[in-house]
Amino acid sequence: MLSAFFHSFLSERIKLRRSLLGWLILCGGSFVPAIMLAVRIRRQQQLPNWHRLGVFWEKHWIESWESISIMILPLMVVLLTTLILQVEYRNNTWKQVHASPQTWGTIFSAKLAVVLLALLQLFVVINLGLYLAGALPSLLVGAGGGISSSPIPWIRMLARDANYFVECLPIVAIQFLLALRFRNFLVPIGIGVAGWILSLVLINTSYNFLIPYNYTGIDYLISTGHRSGQNLPTTLGTLACGTFAVLTLVSYALYSRQADKG
């Protein structure tokens, strides 16, 4: 079974060669780091002061993640998930996939794994981009006395990354369900963007956890002390994992019971 999954996963990865996925991850992941880099270079006279701060990297990370967590991550998850599943609809290949010797479970899990891997790649690009956005300005413009010597809080940053990753999972599950069911890619993208906008509207209310399109944004606001998080019935991580598990099961049930598979 594991071998079937592994082969199916490899096959899914090949399908995404030469697709827009790589560019989407690269552009989406480096969007905020590029802006941060431009800002640092524009304000190069302030670099020495920033570098003297013992918490340069932490401040740099916190500033950067504000827009990443609230805007970039939810929208990128909507786009990535839809794009990956659209490969079959766009090429009219679902019938060939379903006429191949794979269980519905293998097909479903391999596709989900590919989406999760793409999300992981997005996190890698974001983090690399943020590091470069912090390190490059002083090297490029020669101000600030080189890369800041303040310690990079790797452990804390990786832990935050892990939290954000988990908090993206409900969006993955919703979009996966929608993208599997609807041939027209505008439906999952439209619902995804509408969900994200609704979550932005609700983000300052005590019901913000009801629309799982911005758990990353809520987490950011709580972790930076802008919100207390007391309205949450449980931790965001638990909410995200629970929502992901339930929606994934629903999604699989709908998919495997589909009477017409191509």
Binding site: S8, S11, K15, N91, N92, Q96, S100, P101
Partner: peptide, 22 residues
């Protein structure tokens, strides 16, 4: 079945490799 089911953005070798793995 019906029209050919192929990945339009892949070469012929890549198209076959998709199924060779499966």
């Amino acid at each position: 079945i019906e029209s050919p089911s192929l990945y339009a953005h892949l070469s012929s070798v890549e198209n076959l490799t998709v199924w060779q793995k499966v």
